[in-house]
């Protein structure tokens, strides 16, 4: 479980995170949602340690990430996997080499076992046969799937996804969502997804936190989203014309 306690972060005197408190449970797909500029990417970057908060705690199963030494942070990071908005694949490496990279760096497996493990991860994300291709030769959806395969290669305890559906068509977005959700349950990971894609919210949002101007505005599940009376959340959610129609039809 990941817990955030009174998290603050500012840039040049402007407070972007204003005391966030939240919990993300094991084996669940946790979503951070909010408008662009609400602070959700900053929150995610604080959680994974790319930014350091000015105040507050980030507890990974009780271990405070903020107070850790550099060495302890490095060790904890080996329990993390991350899928970036732009996939962030190493473009000088083939698909197979990308997935093998964390194994090459941190596992004591021999070459045969590393290749076997990487191929298994690629099969898990339905990318059998793409091993020798380079990131520039495959589609955006395939790149995201390679990123997922790379993220799970070392069996991480925590999986972070920064806008995994960004730039993908709705059908491919669903595939990616289902893949992340399935993997989360399969490996009992703590998964945190940063998104503003309403299909993801309604599809896989087992635990959702809504951030508004750097503050935690609402917490709930996908079933509670539709019936929420929080004005800021509803104005964000039902900005989508389609969802408004669904809500009106349900009424």
């Amino acid at each position: 479980m990941i817990e955030l306690k009174d998290l603050h972060k500012s840039f040049g005197g402007r407070e972007v995170l204003k005391g966030i408190n939240a919990q993300f449970e094991d084996g669940k797909t946790n979503l951070i949602i909010g408008q662009s500029g609400s602070g959700k990417t900053v929150l995610m970057k604080n959680i994974v340690g790319l930014f350091t908060p000015e105040k507050g705690q980030i507890l990974y199963d009780g271990r405070d990430f903020v107070q850790m030494t550099q060495k302890e942070r490095v060790m904890l990071r080996r329990e993390m996997g991350m899928i970036f908005q732009a996939a962030a694949l190493f473009d000088s490496m083939s698909v197979l080499e990308n997935v093998m990279f964390p194994l090459d760096m941190f596992s004591d497996m021999n070459l045969t076992d590393r290749i076997k493990r990487a191929k298994f991860c690629l099969e898990r994300v339905n990318l059998k046969g793409a091993e020798d291709k380079f990131p520039g030769e495959i589609s955006g959806g395939m790149q995201k799937r390679v990123a997922i395969a790379r993220a799970i290669a070392l069996n991480p305890k925590y999986l972070f996804c920064d806008e995994p559906n960004s730039g993908l068509d709705p059908k491919t977005s669903l595939v990616i969502d289902e893949l992340i959700h399935g993997i989360t349950e399969e490996y009992n990971m703590t998964t945190i997804i940063n998104t503003h894609d309403m299909n993801s919210v309604m599809g896989i949002g087992e635990h959702i936190i809504y951030i508004y101007e750097g503050e935690l505005e609402w917490v709930g599940t996908k079933d509670e989203v539709m019936s929420s009376t929080n004005e800021r959340l509803t104005s964000f959610i039902f900005a989508s014309d389609m969802l408004r129609k669904v809500r009106d039809a349900n009424k």
Binding site: L50, R73, R77, R78, M82, F84, A88, D91, F106
Partner: peptide, 13 residues
């Protein structure tokens, strides 16, 4: 700019 360096940092490299 394509976050490949961030990806390395996240891996603890």
């Amino acid at each position: 700019v394509t976050q490949q360096i961030d990806a390395l940092e996240i891996m603890g490299i």
